[in-house]
Design a protein around this nucleic acid. Structure first.
Lengths: 108, 108
DNA sequence: TTCGTATTACGATGAATGTCGTATTTCGAT
DNA sequence: ATCGAAATACGACATTCATCGTAATACGAA
């Protein structure tokens, strides 16, 4: 029943954001969050990795300030922190997402 | 050694670009290239690392398609491949550079 | 309460990465 | 022809990172 640690908007660094987005699997998570419902449970993501690896990637994204997570029963709902990101690094997320969609059109 | 291997514009991947830009030292190189003369020699960059480490970072940037390099005497001139990058991933470089300048105003 | 689902925590492992020192190459200048 | 400066190549090392398996936790449902 605990809470997650989320960085404050002011604590979000470009370095953390780019390091998080440098991994293709994490980009696919971000992309699905951007293109789908605002809040999605972890199990909704079809990732070719073990559960514990999935957890690892979600944590990296959360600690970088890219997503926020909250509990709902046994599930965890994740959502994009678009506003905080755009305040801190305007356009970075959107341009990267656009490039990602362009480079990999089908796989959402 | 006369020639360098540069990826074609079509060979530039978002993954390579982001992986290259995930390192703060490489971002500082890119920033100096963006804010200074179009072509700059490696020794012009004041980086707190050994010469061989410097070479390593320039190669990563070159192989990712971020910069192009050519020989001029014993020196090597590096320049940003802004056009190729914007064709492949529009706005990505510019928004990242803007965020970088905003986050670290003085150090250029 | 017991069970099952969703997810995390922990520890291990192999690969990738940033760093360095040393030796080497290239080229201009002396 | 030799020297020095610029940069690379190579090999080594430590750290980080992505991955996994296993065990544990929280919560809803039966």
């Amino acid at each position: 029943m605990r809470e997650f640690e989320h960085p404050e908007p002011s604590e979000i660094t470009l370095d953390g954001v780019l390091a998080a987005l440098a991994d293709p699997l994490r980009r696919s998570i971000i992309r699905q969050l951007a293109d789908g419902p605002a809040e999605q449970r972890c199990s909704r993501f079809a990732l070719p990795v073990a559960p514990s690896t999935r957890t690892h990637h979600f944590r990296v994204l959360r600690e970088a300030g890219l997503i926020s997570q909250r509990y709902q029963g046994t599930a965890i709902l994740s959502s994009l922190r678009s506003d905080d990101l755009n305040a801190r690094a305007p356009g970075v997320l959107d341009t990267i997402l656009a490039a990602e969609r362009r480079e990999h059109p089908a796989s959402a």
